[in-house]
Design a protein around this nucleic acid. Sequence first.
DNA 1: AGCGCACTACGTACGCTGTACGTAACTAGG
DNA 2: CCTAGTTACGTACAGCGTACGTAGTGCGCT
Lengths: 234, 234
Amino acid sequence: MAGRAAVPEVIWARPERTGRGPRPAYTRADIAAAAVRIADAEGLDAVSMRRVAGELGCGTMSLYNYVPRKEDLYELMMDAVSGEHELWEPCGDWRADMIRVAHQTRDLMHRHTWLPRLMSPVYGFSPNALRYLEHCLACLDPFEAPYGTKMELVAMVNGVVTTYVGNEIATVERTRSLPWSQEQENAVRIAYLGRQVASGAYPRLAASFAEAAGPIDLEGVFERALTRVLDGFA
Amino acid sequence: MAGRAAVPEVIWARPERTGRGPRPAYTRADIAAAAVRIADAEGLDAVSMRRVAGELGCGTMSLYNYVPRKEDLYELMMDAVSGEHELWEPCGDWRADMIRVAHQTRDLMHRHTWLPRLMSPVYGFSPNALRYLEHCLACLDPFEAPYGTKMELVAMVNGVVTTYVGNEIATVERTRSLPWSQEQENAVRIAYLGRQVASGAYPRLAASFAEAAGPIDLEGVFERALTRVLDGFA
DNA sequence: AGCGCACTACGTACGCTGTACGTAACTAGG
DNA sequence: CCTAGTTACGTACAGCGTACGTAGTGCGCT
């Protein structure tokens, strides 16, 4: 009954197949792909054990043979999409390579908008995550600094990307569960914010709003944040 | 039936008391305080509508007269603890003031470990959040830059603090729902990680681990991240 | 060769969640 | 005074993660 043992374990330390018993009907990759498909199409909250089992075509509780806890399903999902990271030969300019890494991660998160939400709570070092981390360190070979600093740089870049894409996506993802449209939601919030700012209680905030003409250039904000972070390390 | 209208609205735009009907038994502050008490003591997941109502001593569905959706309860909670921010007279050195802001936010999050988890998805501009934002802008008065840049600085500092404290807290918060201890969890994960690193597949990661003697100095990591971000703006 | 055990599969059931809805009591405005 | 808008709250529903029991399957060992 190893599958039911209430024992701390990392899913990646569990062999996918032990040899004994009937051969499993699905692979971890199958399960991860099904979950990712659901999350991409209907949002992370649509990913339930029942729903994934349904997508696979098996009974709900059969899933628990592969995935002891739901959190492990999340780790499977993250590892699966981490595998989409393209790992290139570093060009020798660590700054350029880190910018490329950041852009790629951002694209990945745009493709899988549920990623930022999972990044924070789950600090798993899945196989593909380790590969990605190693690649980042390879990009930083020309950066003369102790590994501690390099790790902090990687963490910082990842953190900034996660935060920014998370903010970009927040509204979209949130309105998925609401009975009204994203435009209505935004309109209401902006109207309220405008009223508050117009009240005169927040002069600098008001000035800030007055200064801003048109919508925010998210792309530019991201780019600037990135270069500033890298500047801070150089 | 305004309380039941399925209409987009911000909770802060709803008057707390309209005049008609029996006078409400609780204030928003009461409700927020109850929810915060639960979250502080037992974690965010312990905050359910039933639980909060129980803490207040009323029926579950009575809560919905005050809080149309659970997400609004979260906004109430965030606003309540945002009120704990001390707002001082800026000292004239925006760098020093921003560092002080960051430290205070960090302390706040240590006191209320569920805050980082709520920060990302909820982008509410509650009264106390606006006050806090205005205060940050006041601290940045000596920083000669357009308001757009100042806002990006504030967002960046807040983002970094949220990310770092979130990471600090992740393990602690996560093990709350697990049947085994945080130490066991960590031991298992470290053992797995050590095995992977020792496999030779990740040479730089291995070097990085070899370099690190003893546990990570989280305090130092935070401090360095902060100064680097500020450096990137100056 | 065959026994036993570890494994897969899966239905049922429990306690929990957010919340829609109906009803009764109450009170301020017209 | 009346009535409309509120508060209060019990009941109910659909969904969740998952503990547990049971039946069938096939590898590894003796």
